[in-house]
Simulated scan of single mutants.
Amino acid sequence: MENGSYRYEILRIEGLRITRYSSYPVFALLFLIYLFIMVSNIGIVMMIAMDKALHKPMYFLFCNLPLNDAISATVILPRLLKDIVAESDRYISFIACVIQAFGYHFMGTSAHTILIIMAFDRYVAICDPLRYHTIMNNTKVVRLSVIAWITAFVPVGALLALTARLSHCSSVISNPFCDNPSLFKLSCENVLLNQIVGLLFSVMYGMISILCIAVTYLKIAHVCLKNKNSMIKGKAIKTCSTHLIVYLILLGCGSTVIILHRFSAYEELRNVASVLVYVIPSSLNPVVYGLQTKEIRQGLKQIFLRRKVIPG
């Protein structure tokens, strides 16, 4: 069966290497984290949709980020939770595995483009405030949001198509979930092309996002240094620092996994990092924006005050 030309229709996922006694505490922890991710991110989107005071280009563009976080967590965590408690049933079809891998890479790539368009919004607001509402009109906001999502579709699709054509000599996914490197590692063929294309895609997309964010912030910094109004400077620094923290968290987590995939000796560490790359940003993003953004913080306070029951 393992003759170099066979493709397994059913694959087994190794999952996280945890003992039977620690599986339930890990399950409970990840379930609570997933619950927090969904409630916090979807809650922020609903709050922005319902509060007319937040119907501004900045917050409409920001809605893309919690949506991305909620979908990303759903792509990975429910399946991972099932595998933790059902060790004997860690099987997935090849097609479902490819779909999960596509979702994993698509959402990760889209997160970068979403943060790029958010940086562009801050650049226009700070560097060209008088024309902000003319430039960032409803049509532009919709176009930027669509661009943020569709730009990842073609390159990620091409990456997975290149991997899906390979034959298999193994049916075991060494990762806790399906991704492109784990899929092409199933093959005994020469996967140098897959490795090169995957690495080039990751580096190229990472460099583009770093370059766009860096240029944007350099221009914002230049305007802030020239401006003598300390109030405007303070508001710009507070708004931009929130965005920059979120971007650095995403970049740091993503880079760690990419690097660890190149070293087979750190497989167990890579498996944990692969899960954390979605758990950490998706959990921290709503907290960072909720605490740092005055309007969102006030909106959350109003929601809690409305629900507070005063004894008669």
Rank of each mutant, 00 (worst) to 15 (best):
R131G: 04
L144A: 06
V124C: 11
F120T: 00
C97H: 02
I84N: 05
K82D: 15
F102R: 05
T74K: 03
G43H: 02
N138L: 09
D121N: 14
L35N: 02
L54A: 04
I84C: 06
L61G: 09
L80A: 11
A125M: 12
R79V: 08
D89F: 08
S93G: 14
A119Q: 10
R122T: 07
I147F: 15
F102A: 04
F120K: 00
M50A: 12
I33T: 10
I99K: 13
S93W: 09
D128T: 14
M118G: 00
T74C: 13
M118L: 14
G43S: 05
I37T: 09
V146S: 03
M107H: 07
F94S: 08
K140T: 13
H55N: 12
I116P: 00
A28M: 10
T74I: 11
N137T: 03
I42D: 01
R131V: 05
S93N: 07
A53I: 11
I116S: 14
M46P: 00
M107P: 01
I116Y: 06
Y123M: 12
R122S: 05
F94L: 08
F27K: 07
Y104A: 12
F94P: 00
Y132P: 06
K56V: 13
M58C: 03
A96Y: 06
L29W: 05
R90D: 15
Q100L: 08
Y59R: 06
E87R: 07
R90N: 15
Y123Q: 08
N137I: 00
L67T: 03
S110K: 02
L29S: 13
F31W: 07
F62Q: 00
H112Y: 13
M46L: 15
T139P: 00
S145F: 07
M38E: 11
N64E: 07
M46Y: 11
Y34P: 01
I33L: 13
F60L: 12
F36E: 01
D128F: 08
A125I: 02
P66E: 03
A49D: 10
